[in-house]
């Protein structure tokens, strides 16, 4: 077991999240049965008060889990490599953790994404004085629990799997994975870094224009178009991660090829990973928020104005996040080109 203060901080954050979550879940389970928004009797007002409190607790859960994800990434990328022989970045730590390590990263991100999704619905509900989405928000918050539990369980399993007497080979894990990826999907793996980078830039232009249009749009487009563009935005984010892995990182590390995203979080590389993935997370949340607003506006017609405002704000966020991401990701490549007159 690793008893670093940040590890303890992570457990403390998770413990706090559970305390708040269980309290909120208790309130929701007490308040949700017999929910009758058309009635104003004592029981219904009591239920409304309970769910209002649960909503406030949901915001605490969001803050705690977002911070816990940041701490989790920090400990994997910067702290735990010290305790794993042979590990130079988070890649080595994940190798030592085995499959629970990768699952833990995925589940934590999924849990935080799910809570942010709840937050998008909750803010729409907060904008509506009549609170027509209160019951839906409460149900969504209940769904977060299993994901939180699975994430915590896999983190624990991964941490137990780390053995200080078993060295790992950080770099060979990357190249082995790249080789396996090449065998599994030769077409995608056969693409050159240039293709990924050009694909990322083209996708960024579309996403950036879409974000700007949503922000400054003359009118709301049909839900189908909005959802299609949200899907495209998510596809661009995947492309951006792959372009970062296979292309842009070379200019950041200043070597020919080192497809490791975990090294981006190291102090040697100015911890750019936090900024880059933070911006991608911001863009992902804006896209999610926009998609949820459109879906809710279709389902609940009277929320059209509120959804319009939220889509507008999400568009602004998507535009800014994608713009800043591209500046930071592609900036080193452009600087390289200006300094040396060629690409790597």
């Amino acid at each position: 077991m690793i008893w670093h203060p940040l590890t303890l901080c992570l457990w403390l954050l998770d413990l706090s999240t559970w305390m708040v979550y269980l309290s909120a879940a208790g309130r929701i389970l007490a308040g949700l049965p017999g929910w009758q928004p058309g009635v104003s009797d004592r029981r219904q007002l009591w239920r409304e008060f309970r769910l209002e409190l649960a909503g406030l607790q949901g915001r605490w859960i969001l803050a705690l889990q977002s911070f816990a994800l940041l701490v989790f990434i920090t400990v994997i990328a910067i702290v735990w490599p010290i305790y794993v022989p042979g590990a130079m970045c988070g890649k080595g730590v994940l190798q030592a953790m085995g499959s629970p390590g990768y699952q833990a990263v995925f589940l934590r991100i999924a849990a935080v994404g799910c809570i942010w999704g709840w937050h998008a619905v909750s803010t729409m509900d907060a904008d509506d004085p009549q609170g027509r989405l209160t019951a839906l928000c409460a149900r969504l918050l209940l769904l977060v629990g299993p994901l939180l539990f699975a994430a915590d369980l896999t983190v624990g399993r991964g941490l137990v799997a780390i053995r200080p007497d078993h060295p790992v080979s950080c770099c060979s894990a990357i190249y082995d994975q790249t080789a396996v990826f090449g065998e599994l999907s030769p077409v995608i793996a056969g693409l050159t870094p240039g293709v990924w980078m050009v694909g990322c830039v083209c996708g960024w232009i579309v996403v950036c224009c879409w974000g700007f249009y949503q922000w400054r749009r003359p009118r709301l487009l049909t839900p189908a178009v909005c959802l299609l563009m949200s899907g495209l935005s998510f596809c661009w984010m995947v492309t951006a991660v792959l372009a970062l892995k296979f292309g842009f990182t070379s200019y950041i590390y200043e070597i020919l090829s080192h497809p490791c995203l975990w090294c981006l979080f190291l102090v040697d590389h100015h911890m750019l990973g936090f900024l880059l993935f933070g911006l991608l997370g911001w863009a992902a949340f804006a896209t999610l928020s926009s998609a949820i607003s459109v879906i809710l506006a279709v389902r609940y017609g009277h929320l059209g104005d509120i959804a319009g405002r939220r889509v507008k704000r999400a568009g602004c966020h998507l535009f800014l996040a994608s713009l800043m991401f591209m500046v930071i990701a592609a900036g080193p490549a452009l600087l390289w080109r200006m300094r040396f007159g060629g690409w790597l």
Binding site: E52, A126, P129, Q130, G131
Partner: peptide, 11 residues
């Protein structure tokens, strides 16, 4: 006609 007593604090 709006039930302000049931609105959230913000509203």
């Amino acid at each position: 006609g709006q039930p302000i007593s049931r609105w959230t604090q913000r509203h």
